[in-house]
Design a protein around this nucleic acid. Sequence first.
RNA 1: GGCGCAUUCGUCUAGCGGCCUAGGACGCGUCCCUCUCAAGGACGAGAUCACCGGUUCGAAUCCGGUAUGCGCUACCA
Length: 489
Amino acid sequence: MTNPVRVRFAPSPTGYPHVGNIRTALFNWLFARHHGGSFIVRIEDTDVARKVEGAVEAILDGLRWLGLDWDEGPVVGGDYGPYFQSQRLDRYHEATRRLISQGNAYNCYCSPQRLEEMRAEQTKNKQPPGYDRQCRNLSREECARAEAAGVVPVVRFKTPLAGQTRFQDLIRGEVVFENSTIDDFVLLKSDGYPTYHLANIVDDHFMEISHVMRAEEWLSSTPRHVLLYQAMGFDPPQFAHLPMILGPDRSKLSKRHGAVSIIEYREQGYLPETMFNFLSLLGWSLDDKTEIMSRSEVVRDFSLERISRTAAIFNKDKLDWMNGLYIRKLSPEEFVQRALPFLDKGLSPEVKRPLSLDYVRQIMPLVQERAKILTELADLTGFLFVDQLDYKPDLLVGKGMTPESTIKALEAGRAKLQESAVFEIEALEMAFRPLADALGLKTGQFFGTLRVAITGRTVSPPLFQTMVVLGRERCQQRIEAALVRLRAA
RNA sequence: GGCGCAUUCGUCUAGCGGCCUAGGACGCGUCCCUCUCAAGGACGAGAUCACCGGUUCGAAUCCGGUAUGCGCUACCA
């Protein structure tokens, strides 16, 4: 029996939950669920300076929204806690002490200024920048002198000067690094907090993480981690470096590419099922055809072997298409429930709140197959909620029509509305269609004029469905109002 | 500059030596449906599989080199 699958998502609370990070979380979650393992969330809050208030909550919100539940971590706890690195400092200090006493690490008293100058000099001379190991072999006395002068040291790893470090990446195969290209990186900062490298391997070890799945940007630091595992005498986990997500210009996805926070997508009216499906397909695929998959199908079929090695550009057009598809898949009532908050937020303040649930239920079927994102619903249906329409009168006059023929058409429409016994879609269409003929207009012209009178726009849901929702009285009022406008023009 | 990873239609991808005159999806175009817009349906344009060599009877698939892109190169993660 092999070790149980335990994977972790380890965000640093330095900002919003980026879709790239969330995709990493998703893949970890999928891997855990597929194998019946555990998905752990660990907050890597070791950078005190860059810490952002509220970031942890935002990240957890993003996970919850996508339904990525965690077995251990913030809120839920677990046997391997605490799950905030800032609460685990003693473990890192203990590891550091061990490394120093074993001769695998040492105190470094170099000032930030010296390091900066050193790097500047190295770059100038076309040397690879890296720590020059000035403090690597300090004597006891030299250390004492620096301490006495009040210098707080950092602790650096004593990287082997020669040899190679290699590891198997589950996605990329064997990766080899020359130790000579790795400098003596910092393990413990002078503020007493560990760097990512130290905290990461200590926690992954003590939390018994079986697979480390993270973005490709970490591939280059993996040999350091392997070296650390060796120095600590720990068995390293398996590594899998995921392809990155890029913006349309092929650079790392960032704010200037538009929305990057998962929270923003929620606010724009993308459905969580869309994001789940779409993000699953960014760097992973099942076969040459299958694209629309439920969460349980993705869990069932997910595998590391089918993860791509190439970075993927975030294709917003495809996201929009997929969201439209998921919107159409919603039951009418489900759609109403999801739409409600967006209508509430997006509709003109003049519209009476709370919105009439009953009325919204009548309206939503008109736009369910026309919306790609929930935020456009308010604009699509706004004309159904207001009393006064606002449009230019000449919109009423269709192609090949004159103001006079338009007035005639509207008057005929008004009369027909009056006499229609049954106010239903079929009946209305049966009554109005012949009327176009009688007026010498094409149905497109006649209905177009009516459409503008009824909705205030040239593009709308089907005319008669719209009219039925509005009701006879309001339709008459609107035609009347159109007539008034046209005559005044 | 050094090190590492990658390279199939504009984009997401299928392909793991013969099934490929390279398949699907988004987007785009044309047409059908049609009261507008969508949705739906049909068709189409779009990839000398980065390039150059090699291995092989046979390569998008294996190997080497080159180019390009991306990542790392912090007391950030």
